[in-house]
Design a protein around this nucleic acid. Structure first.
Length: 609
RNA sequence: GCUCCCGUAGUUUAAUGGAUAAAACAUCUCCCUUCUAAGGAGAGAAUAGGGGUUCGAUUCCCUUCGGGAGCACCA
């Protein structure tokens, strides 16, 4: 019968038709209809049916009748299976003071499941094809890749995969931080204390050491000057600027950065070198994380386009001077102005982001750009978007995909300065150690132990799942124990389930792939089918809210359902041959969905663990 | 000082304004001669306080308290 609707869509359509008829009967304009006519899945609360609707409550103030009356009138318009053989609806009940509860014939799950095809799912789900740039990861040159970057990368990778899966044209963009006063500091530090060989050997560690040393020395310098400065600021050799005075080192850093902006060959060479070494080191990590990028481009590469942008801005009359700096005023938008050039002529973060935006629009013509950037930059990006729109860089829809901070145990802030930053490499190392220990424990005999690649898959699965299972907006507490736990709601639990199913399927041989009529179906069978059929709904939700946690939660509950299923029903030993084959087919599909879901999350699903 | 985000079992997290707030970890009971016990079955345990809007509030509004972030020459 070529039934491609999910049960949810089926009920949704039925309800819409009934609603349309109802509105027509009562002469209500469709514009007045309740906006929210969604239905709700009633999962395990069976007394409320399979799906439930609350439209009657929402219609009440419009129609000026009681929800109960309205519900009755709507229900009368819904075709039931017993009167209409094409209907899957067994009964519709009105509960409470106006809930409309739909009870479906089990047959819908079997029919729908029989037609379910993972292959055709992306085609069914695909919306209007569009080109989308997803900016994510974006670490800084010469700085460690910490837990926050990890969360960002894993989320961005998921969003990229999800968009690709639903047939969008994705450009994965890594916007490297390789410009700004901090590089002036780094250059000063390198010129004073640097060692080329050490940097070649261990670039990020060594460059970070230099940066920290600079910070400490500058702080010492400032403290020693502080008492003097208070009484006679000009005598301390400090240059008062923008209400703050600079120490010798800080002034040097600023000078070096200015040289950089003006194209000083030595400094540019140094920066390129730092960048090259850093990218080399990050590439190893990305490979390990199974993340890739179409464009890796540093902020430094945009500086050349500055005159063009500024020319455009002043021609349109947006560029103003204020206290020696060049700004775009956002007074009419009720926001603080955006600084594009410091009083010493140097560019700022906003400048480079606008330049980058201009470049992206001109070169790639995207329909949409997603900025996967931490929550703390909400205001910053809001300003960026407002300016972009104001000055005509509005060809693409810009969206900030923000995510909360990652805290340390006890909700303490993790910071480089306080020395309690957690790097991605440390996390991977620790979790890998644990995974290896578990692997040895489960497989004491080295001959039957899966390859070390599997251990790595499990460790990374644990880390990624841990980050992706949480809603992206909220701040999360980084909990090492939780990440090291391979039980319950964890990546390894999903991988374990997949491996167990794979084992059953491989033992069953070719029968597992044969499609069978869904004749059987006790409660556990139906429960699994129901879950499988929710897959596309879940992906839709993820797409709408640009978050991974609905998928993670879904896969966990699917795995739960499956574990309970084969615990209760030994499959290979089933004497009813038809039932055995049908169930094997069901497991085949389940395994495919698990695998596909994990793949979207960027998690490997080994067949044996 | 102003703006934004957050406050849910002991802990870490779920819940498009819907009915009896859902899980995991931890705690406690059971289940390995049976397709991998990284598993399954079960128990106890929560919406920071106070107002308001609504038929109905964890969700929206106000307020107090507590935590975090941001507020033009950093990124």
């Amino acid at each position: 019968m070529g039934f491609l609707l999910t049960p949810r869509e089926y009920i949704q359509n039925t309800l819409r038709e009934a609603m349309e008829a109802y509105l027509k009967n009562n002469k209500i304009a469709s514009s007045q209809a309740p906006r929210n006519d969604n239905i709700e899945s009633k999962g395990n609360r069976e007394q409320f049916g399979d799906f439930s609707s609350t439209v009657a409550f929402q219609l009440a103030p419009i129609v000026k009748k009681s929800p109960l009356e309205i519900a009755k009138e709507i229900v009368a318009l819904i075709p039931l299976a017993r009167n209409d053989s094409s209907s899957y609806i067994q009964k519709v009940e009105i509960a409470g003071n106006g809930f409309i509860n739909f009870f479906l014939d089990e047959k819908i799950y079997r029919d729908s499941f029989r037609e379910f095809s993972l292959k055709s799912l992306p085609i069914v789900m695909a919306g209007k094809e569009s080109k989308v740039i997803i900016e994510f990861s974006s670490p800084n040159v010469a700085k460690p890749f910490h837990i926050g970057h990890l969360r960002n990368t894993v989320l961005g990778e998921f969003l990229s995969r999800l968009h690709e899966y639903t047939n969008h044209n994705v450009i994965r963009w890594n916007h490297l931080g390789d410009w700004g006063t901090q590089f002036g500091k780094l250059i000063v530090a390198y010129k004073k204390w640097g060692d080329e060989k050490k940097i070649d050997k261990n670039p990020i560690t060594e460059l970070l050491y230099l940066y920290v040393k600079f910070t400490n020395e500058a702080k010492k310098e400032r403290e020693s000057l502080a008492p003097l400065e208070k009484s006679r600021p000009e005598a301390a050799g400090a240059v008062p600027e923008a209400g703050r005075s600079l120490t010798g080192l800080e002034q040097q850093a600023r000078d070096e950065f200015n040289k950089l902006e003006k194209g000083d060959a030595v400094n540019i060479e140094l920066l390129k070198w730092f960048q090259k070494e850093t990218i080399k080191e990050f590439s190893l990590l990305y490979k390990r994380l199974d993340s890739r990028f179409d464009v890796i481009k540093g902020e430094s590469s945009y500086i050349a386009g500055k005159e063009k942008l500024f020319g455009l801005l002043s021609k349109k009359g947006f560029l103003e001077k204020s206290e020696g700096a060049k700004i775009v005023s956002l007074e009419s938008e009720g926001m603080l102005p955006v600084l594009l050039e410091k009083s010493d002529g140097a560019t700022l973060y906003h400048t480079r982001d606008l330049l980058s935006l201009q470049y992206r629009l001109e070169k790639y013509h995207p329909d949409r750009i997603l900025y996967v950037v931490g929550d703390e930059q909400t205001l910053y990006l809001k300003q960026l978007f407002v300016v972009a729109k104001k000055i005509g860089l509005n060809a693409a829809d810009l969206q900030h995909v923000s995510y909360g901070l990652v805290f340390g145990p006890g909700k303490k802030k993790l910071s480089t300065r306080e020395g309690n930053v957690i790097t991605a490499n440390e996390i991977i190392k620790d979790v890998l150690f644990k995974a290896s220990a578990v692997m040895h424990e489960k497989h004491p005999d080295a001959a039957t132990r899966p390859p070390t690649k599997v251990t790595e898959d499990i460790a990374l699965g644990a880390i990624k799942y841990n980050l992706l299972k949480e809603s992206r907006q909220s701040d999360v507490v980084f909990d090492f124990d939780a990440m090291l736990s391979f039980q319950g709601n964890s990546g390894p639990y999903l991988q374990y389930t997949y491996a167990r199913i794979s084992k059953i399927l491989s033992r069953a041989g070719i029968f597992a792939s044969a499609k069978r009529d869904m004749l059987y179906g006790d409660r556990t069978d139906i429960a699994v089918m129901k879950k499988i059929l929710e897959f596309s709904d879940v992906l839709d939700t993820c797409m709408q809210i640009l978050s991974s946690h609905p998928l993670a939660e879904y896969l966990f509950s699917l795995a739960n359902e499956l574990n309970a299923f084969y615990e209760k029903n030994p499959i290979l030993k089933d004497e009813d041959a038809k039932r055995r084959k049908q169930r094997l087919y069901m497991l085949r599909i389940s395994a495919d969905v698990l695998q596909q879901g994990l793949e979207l999350l960027g998690i490997q699903a080994p067949k044996q663990i």
